[in-house]
Each structure stands twice: as structure tokens, then as C-alpha cells.
């Protein structure tokens, strides 16, 4: 078995957190489990913050290496490294809660993300048009027709038809379909979590 100590810690902490979910908040006798669970979750939040910082520095070093590579150096990496250093140093200097600092960061972030969302809208339109070329199946046809019908219904253009019971029925169809898919995903999530608790999946042992 690889890394038995890490596996034992992961299983025992995982079991405590899982059991905590099944204990009602008003249960006086088992309050200690809920207390232990909240302490463990608190530790996990701290670990996540440290991991985020490690991940960001990893991203910075990868980009610096690509920027200075002898073969095909990535010149745009310079922008990322410079932007990171300026934002990081300014954040340390003024504090992340400083309103001017937040305004300056958002003044860059919001237009860039807005432009990307615009690109997503164009990409999706093109993908929708190319769907007929990409997938020549009955399911693709049903998907395309459903997308158009439900977009029209959701747009409110057919508001005068809302008195017909059949329209109400059609509008509920995507909710039913979505719930069906989500039930399957919930079952999959349950078994994926149990595999970690049973030590069959160990992404943490290195």
C-alpha cells in the first residue's frame, strides 16, 4: 500500500466529516462530532488557501520559464509576470480590502472577462451552426430543435401562448430532464466520494 499514514488520515478525517452530515444540529449527545467536523473543515480551508498560493507561484514560475525558453519563448508571459508582480506587491502594500486597490484591479479584470464572455457568445453561435456538420444523428437534431424552441419560449416572445396548458407542460420539460441528469450525477458523486473513503482512489499520496 502506498503512503499508509496519509491514507489512514484521509479515511478517518473523511469519515468524521461524512458522519457529521447525518447528525441533526439539535442532537445534544453527538455535538462533539459536529465540533470536530467544524475544526477539520477550518483546517481544510487554511490548507486550501496555502494550496492556492502555491498554485499561483507554480503558475508564475512556469510562465517565467516559458518566457525565457531558448526555443519558441512565450513573449506574452512577460505581461502575466509583470501584472502578477504589480498586483501582488500593491495588494501587500495597500491591503486587499483597500477600495482604490480593488477598483484598479476590477478596472482591468471586468473588461477583459467581458471581452472573453463576448467571445464565448460568438463561439457558441458558430458551434450551434456547425452542429449539423459535426453530428449527423437524430439526437443532434433533437438537441438543436429543443435549443431553439426553449430559447423562444424563455425569451417571452410567445407570451400570448402562455394560457395554453401544453405550453406550461413544454416549459417544465427541461426541468425534468435536468433533474434526471442531476440524479445520475449525484449517484456518481456518491460513489466517487466512497472510493476515496475506501482508499481505492488516492490522489493525495504522491
Amino acid at each position: 500500500m502506498r503512503s499508509p499514514v496519509a491514507t489512514a488520515i484521509a479515511i478517518s478525517f473523511g469519515l468524521i466529516v461524512l458522519i457529521g452530515y447525518f447528525i441533526p444540529a439539535d442532537s445534544a449527545n453527538l455535538q462533539f462530532i459536529l465540533t470536530i467536523r467544524s475544526i477539520l473543515i477550518g483546517w481544510a480551508v487554511v490548507l486550501a488557501a496555502v494550496a492556492a498560493l502555491v498554485g499561483v507561484f507554480n503558475m508564475l514560475f512556469v510562465n517565467m520559464k516559458r518566457m525565457t525558453a531558448k526555443r519558441n519563448p512565450d513573449r506574452f508571459g512577460f505581461v502575466l509576470v509583470l501584472a502578477f508582480l504589480v498586483t501582488f506587491v500593491a495588494g501587500l502594500w495597500f491591503g486587499p480590502g483597500n477600495s482604490d486597490y480593488q477598483k484598479a484591479v476590477l478596472a482591468v479584470q471586468i473588461p477583459v472577462e467581458g471581452a472573453l464572455m463576448g467571445l464565448v457568445a460568438i463561439t457558441l453561435t458558430v458551434a450551434g451552426l456547425r452542429l449539423a456538420q459535426r453530428r449527423k444523428t437524430l439526437m443532434a437534431g433533437v438537441f438543436a430543435v429543443s435549443a431553439v424552441v426553449f430559447l423562444l419560449l424563455a425569451s417571452g416572445l410567445l407570451g400570448m401562448l402562455s394560457d395554453f396548458p401544453v405550453i406550461g407542460f413544454i416549459q417544465r420539460l427541461p426541468i425534468a430532464g435536468g433533474r434526471g441528469i442531476l440524479l445520475g450525477i449525484a449517484l456518481g458523486s456518491l460513489t466517487a466520494g466512497l472510493r476515496v473513503l475506501l482508499a481505492a482512489d488516492r490522489p493525495y499520496t504522491g
Binding site: 490548507l47 494550496a51 492556492a52
Partner: peptide, 15 residues
């Protein structure tokens, strides 16, 4: 797109 996930992906590949 997450720090913990990137560390776990490195660990997974190492294993």
C-alpha cells in the same frame, strides 16, 4: 483552475 487541484494533479502524475 484551482490551487489544490493543481497540487493533486502533480501528486497523481508522480504516483
Amino acid at each position: 483552475g484551482d490551487g489544490t487541484l493543481s497540487i493533486l494533479s502533480q501528486d497523481t502524475m508522480r504516483a
